[in-house]
Design a protein around this nucleic acid. Structure first.
Length: 659
DNA sequence: GTAGGGTTAG
């Protein structure tokens, strides 16, 4: 019986050229009961121009999350004799828009259709707007396509619908259709269409639209300008974003925030923080966004005093109880080495959203505190639904902690229990975990089974695992793939070269060295930072440019002697060149992190903890050496390398030598 | 007679 009715309504929708959902609404209005699952509300008591009244109520139905229209004994919002049906329905639709109430909106659409006024420009526009706001783009587009006279506002609403919800290409296509239609884009059109370009990282398209912006003279508009900055930021074009920023008249705080975010998102946290200072000097009042962006930038460069400064700055501006700022601080403290402070702030959050849980779980994962991360994940599952980022943190925790079975279990659970499709990041964690645990064949098999295209991160994880386990054959395969994906990255060649060196295959070392020279490739320059007092000191490998260089090298020599007495034997596998052993020892002992540590030792009082940040992975020899240094000097030394944290204390590293 | 921009986790 219900099937018969559905066919009947389908036929009705075809013959009446009316969308099926409206036919169903109409039927519902006529008190058909079997379609109760649609949760439409009866309008039987509604007389458009009668004496009884109803209003849209704001209370939500907890179980269905739909808004309802209910009868009201008060004659407050009903139509008046002076009120036209257009303005009456317009005001009701506006209420639906404000409340994002799609179901009552559909019923109003049905009623409007029944009355034959659904193509009234005002009502049609409001309906399209409502459908777009409620992400019901199919309905919006059905109506939009049937409206013959489309004004600027209507086009903007439809472009916005696609720019917010996708498919983003349609937003861009509609922009050009609007121009062909004879309309000139305005200050509202550009932010929408540029948002679609941002989402697609479509710089060429964005540049074309930027030219249109210039032609219409809207480049200096703050809204258009902010959208342009964001578009260039998402396309990785920092200079173009800055050019737009410099051209905007009367820049508001959002323009500043956009520019701060541009630097931060493109690996330039220091520039972001410098601009934040300029912003403060210009007397602009920072907003929540300013703090979230700046604290995130500070988390990226990992310098705790700078982050603390921002923490205080946010308090002075009354953001001490702002949960978004606090979540950014949780992330910052965790990334800057103070995972315990991060936990205290996390516990102080009034509302722990999924982002907050993710920040804390990821923080634990970075520090190799796998059990804490998994305990927190267990607690989270009882309160908040995890997302794909949560699982990146959980799998990273398993990977850094070497928890093979737990990692496999959570990976399976993510897919089957949480219906989350694994992304390349999840696969990278799994390859890292399997590879570190020596399951190289299984790791390779997983890469072959991946539902997404493996990227350089995935093959890099496999290559690194091959290096740990000395599997030259699979390492060669991984490098082959990496050369296809990252032809200009010399670091990949160096890893395989080191593997050849460890296996004594010097012809392989020479071949790779020649290959690198032919291609003009160099290994990324290793750099380490340490903050002493208010100053950040940077060191490159074998760096002798620091004013205290002589004392630093003297300290290294003194330390080397003590380490040797304590039983330290240099491991020189990570030296690229085929050189004499003595020379190799000298080369590794001058790695950037060792220079930073030596400077820290001579510049701070006994017992002071040292925090060093490095732009690459820490090498095996330095890892062994720093364990010795921590014991000999009785210092706690923390290294944040590109992958994770290493806490050295009393001759032991927190990673348990699993990294 | 209606609308708009930025930021948070690996």
């Amino acid at each position: 019986m219900p099937l018969f009715f559905l066919f009947f309504f389908f036929w009705l929708s075809l013959t009446c050229r009316m969308p099926l959902h409206l036919v169903l609404c109409q039927r519902r209005i006529s008190s058909c009961s079997f379609l109760s699952s649609f949760k439409f509300v009866f309008f039987d008591s509604y007389p458009p121009f009668g004496s009884s009244h109803f209003c849209l109520c704001s209370s939500r139905n907890q179980s269905t999350k739909t808004h309802s229209v209910r009868s009201s004994p008060r004659p407050a919002l009903g139509p008046t004799l002076k009120q036209s049906p257009m303005s009456y329905y317009a005001s009701l639709l506006q209420s639906c828009v404000v409340r994002k109430a799609i179901e009552p909106g559909k019923q109003l659409h049905a009623r409007i259709w029944q009355m034959g006024i659904s193509f009234n420009p005002l009502l049609a526009t409001k309906l399209v707007n409502l459908y777009c706001i409620c992400n019901s783009l199919t309905n919006a587009r059905l109506l939009f396509d049937r409206i013959s006279k489309r004004n600027q506002f209507l086009w903007n609403v439809m472009i916005r619908g696609y720019a917010w919800n996708g498919p983003y290409e349609i937003a861009i296509s509609l922009y050009y259709q609007m121009r062909d239609y004879g309309l000139v884009p305005d200050k509202f059109t550009f932010p929408f269409v540029l948002k679609a370009c941002s989402a697609l990282s479509a710089m060429e398209e964005g540049k074309k639209i930027h030219k249109d912006v210039i032609r219409t003279g809207l480049e200096s508009d703050v809204f258009v300008g902010a959208a342009l900055i964001d578009m260039y930021a998402k396309c990785g074009c920092v200079e173009s974003a800055r050019q737009v920023f410099d051209k905007i008249d009367e820049r508001d705080v959002v323009c500043w925030n956009s520019m701060l975010a541009t630097y931060s998102q493109n690996g330039q946290p220091d520039e972001s923080l410098a601009l934040c200072r300029v912003m403060a000097l210009n007397g602009l009042k920072p907003t929540e966004g300013t703090f979230v962006i700046s604290i995130a930038a500070s988390a990226d460069n990992g310098l705790l005093p700078q982050g603390k400064e921002l923490h205080g700055y946010s308090w002075r501006h009354g953001f001490e109880s702002n949960d978004k700022v606090k979540t950014a601080l949780v992330d910052m403290y965790a990334k800057s080495g103070s995972v315990n402070v991060a936990r205290i702030l996390f516990e102080l959050l009034e509302e722990k959203r999924v982002v907050s849980w993710n920040a804390m779980i990821t923080g634990y994962a970075m520090h190799g505190h796998a059990n804490e991360a998994l305990d927190l994940f267990k607690e989270m599952k009882a309160k908040v639904l995890p997302d794909h980022i949560t699982f990146v943190g959980v799998l990273a925790a398993c990977s850094h902690g070497g928890l093979l079975n737990e990692g496999k279990m959570h990976f399976r659970s993510m897919i089957s229990d949480f219906n989350i499709c694994p992304t390349v990041q999840h696969y990278t964690c799994m390859i890292d975990l399997l590879g570190h645990c020596g399951c190289l064949e299984e790791a390779y098999k997983l890469i072959m089974e991946m539902r997404v295209e493996p990227d350089a991160g995935v093959w890099g994880a496999l290559l690194h695992s091959c290096k740990i386990h000395g599997n030259v054959e699979m390492g060669e395969l991984a490098l082959e793939k990496l050369i296809e994906l990252e032809p200009d990255d010399g670091g990949n060649y160096v890893i395989l070269s080191n593997m050849y060196a460890q296996a004594g295959k010097w012809d392989g070392v020479a071949r790779l060295r020649d290959l690198m020279m032919d291609k003009g490739l160099k290994k990324s320059i290793a750099c380490s930072w340490i903050q002493v007092g208010n100053k950040v000191h940077a060191f490159l490998s074998e760096d002798a440019s620091h004013p205290k260089s002589e004392a630093i090298y003297a300290e290294l020599k003194r330390m080397g002697k003590l380490m040797k007495e304590a039983g330290y034997a240099p491991q020189v596998g990570s030296v690229f060149h085929d050189v004499e052993d003595d020379e190799k020892v000298d080369m590794v002992s001058c790695h950037s992190e060792r220079l930073a540590i030596a400077f820290g030792l001579i510049s701070t009082s006994a017992g002071t903890k040292l925090l060093i940040i490095k732009n690459l992975r820490i090498c095996e020899d330095c890892h062994v050496a720093i364990k010795f240094i921590s014991k000999i000097t009785e210092r706690e030394i923390t290294i944040r390398d590109v992958n994770r944290y290493h806490h050295f204390k009393d001759g032991v590293c927190s990673c348990g030598d699993f990294w």
